[in-house]
Design a protein around this nucleic acid. Structure first.
Lengths: 108, 108
DNA sequence: CAGTCGTATAAGCAATTGCTTATATATTCG
DNA sequence: CGAATATATAAGCAATTGCTTATACGACTG
C-alpha cells in the first residue's frame, strides 16, 4: 500500500527537470557513480548530491558503495506510488489503462 | 508528441496534495462546478480557483460555462505526458509495464 | 602519516509556491 | 437599473525550493 504522502514525494521529486534528468540518466546507464552524473550536468556537484538525496528519499534510486564511489541505480518499486495512483483511477480514463492494474499486480 | 515542459507541468500540478485532491474530486464527480469544489475543501474559494487555473493550464481539466456556473471535468489527454514518459522508459522497468506502450497506442 | 579523490553537508540567497484578504468581473434575478 | 451569486484576479506574505560557495567527511594512496 502506498500513501498519499509517498505519491506526493514521488511527484515532487520528478517535477524538477534537473533532478528528473539525473534520474533518467541513472535509468539509461543502469548504474553510475555520482561523479559520472556530475559530468555532463549543468549544475554543481553539491546540487547533484542534493538531487540524489531527494531521489533516494523518494525511494526512486538505491545506492551501492564501492570504495570511494557510490553507484546509483533505479529502485524498481520507486514508481509504485505513481503507477498505483494511475491504476486506482484507471476506470475514469475511458479504458485507456484497462490492463494497467492487472499488470501491476502480476509484477509483485 | 509531448514536451519535457508539459511533463514538468503535469508533475508539478499534481504534486500539490490540495490541488491533487481537487483533481481527484473532479474525477469522481465527473463534472462539478467550482462552488461544489469549494464546499468540502479545506481552503478558500480563491485558493480553489487558483488550483483550477493551474489544472487547466496543465491541460488536466476542461471547463464548460453554464450561466453563472463553470463546470469542470477531466481532460482526457491531460495525463498523456505522464503516461508517455512512463511508457518511454518501460523497457527499463524490468518488464513491469510490458504492455503499457501498446495500450497507449491503441487508445489514440 | 599527509594528500587527494569522491561525496555530503552547511549556510545563504533569489525565485517560486500556496495561501490569505480584499476587490474585480460576469451573469442572473427582481 | 441594483442586488445577489459564481468565479477570477490582485496584492502581500510565510514557507519551500534549488542553486551557489565553502567546508567537512570518508576512503584510498604514497
Amino acid at each position: 500500500m502506498t500513501t498519499a504522502m509517498q505519491l506526493t514525494n514521488v511527484l515532487k521529486t520528478l517535477a524538477d527537470p534537473t533532478r528528473r534528468a539525473v534520474f533518467e540518466r541513472i535509468i539509461r546507464e543502469g548504474e553510475i557513480a555520482a561523479t559520472g552524473l556530475v559530468q555532463g550536468s549543468k549544475v554543481s556537484q553539491p546540487a547533484v548530491s542534493q538531487h540524489l538525496r531527494a531521489l533516494r528519499d523518494a525511494g526512486l534510486v538505491a545506492e551501492r558503495r564501492e570504495g570511494r564511489h557510490i553507484h546509483y541505480r533505479v529502485a524498481p518499486k520507486g514508481l509504485s506510488p505513481l503507477i498505483d495512483w494511475l491504476g486506482h483511477y484507471e476506470t475514469f480514463w475511458a479504458e485507456r489503462f484497462a490492463n494497467l492494474e492487472r499488470l501491476l499486480k502480476e509484477s509483485e
